[in-house]
Amino acid sequence: MTNLAVNLPGLQLKNPVMPASGCFGFGREYSEFYDLGKLGAVIMKAATGSERFGNHVPRVAETSSGMLNAIGLQNPGVEKIIETEVPFLADYDTKLIANVAGSTIEEYELVAKTFNQTNQVHALELNISCPNVKEGGSQFGTDPFMAAKVTERVKQANNLPVYVKLSPNVSDIITMAKAVEAAGADGLSMINTLAGMQIHLPSKRPLLANKTGGLSGPAVKPIAIRMIYEVKQHVSIPIIGMGGISNAEDVLEFLLAGANAVAVGTANFQNPFICPEIIDELPGVLNKYGFGSVQDAVGKGIVE
């Protein structure tokens, strides 16, 4: 019997697979396809202190082996999410991770505190890496000093484990990872999308209304693998890995690079059943490559 269970701060996961933030809303739509209790965890769409409308459309564009998005953190605000979305997800036998976003450190603190009071959320994912908003998000995620500061303040403001979601849009990901670890992060979540752009030929203008967007999908997987591989060797906190995962072999690749669990994002759009399918296929893939458990494979791809 292959053991898929993973034990992370605040998260005793029955398996290492969870839908990535922003690609799954608050789970309602996908609950019509399958039982969300199959998932290791659900990472909710980002929450901010108050409601955000987000960017103008077009908000998505397809690219070779991937897509760009610039949604702009549209969400009804943390209070409304706790009132209308969290109770729905809490009914499922899965762990709940809240993605926390903001424009200021105070807003991050407020959102974290508010989730902490519900007793229905098991961990926070600190979103300091959204490339699609003018304020907040990535200015915290590209400066190690700011990243450490917001991590420390959010840790002080609540009791939940905090996984800091790192931006790949930096020249030195290791420095970022070490800075947030030193500031008290319980884990890392990586990678967020890569800043990109597409020009629309008929209009001769950027296709996305926001001009730039975050690149995701299989195109970014090698970058995610490389960054996790590098970071793993410099931190001792666990990593939730993500970036273009679309099958169980990809999951094993992330585990070998050093991820302890994984999130699946863009692939949900092509195949709404992708998460349960990967969970079903994972034991076979682990066995095929000689692993008896998820835990056995973590970091085994790292060579001296």
């Binding site: 922003g22 690609c23 799954f24 809303g25 309602r28 739509e29 996908y30 019509e32 769409k45 409308f53 987000g54 459309v57 077009p58 908000r59 998505v60 564009a61 897509m67 998005n69 949604i71 549209q74 949900n268 759009f269 709404p272």
Partner: peptide
Amino acid sequence: EERMGCGVGACFACVIP
């Protein structure tokens, strides 16, 4: 009509005010 992501209401790509 709009450029869509998930097509099921989860990703917030195709909204209209």
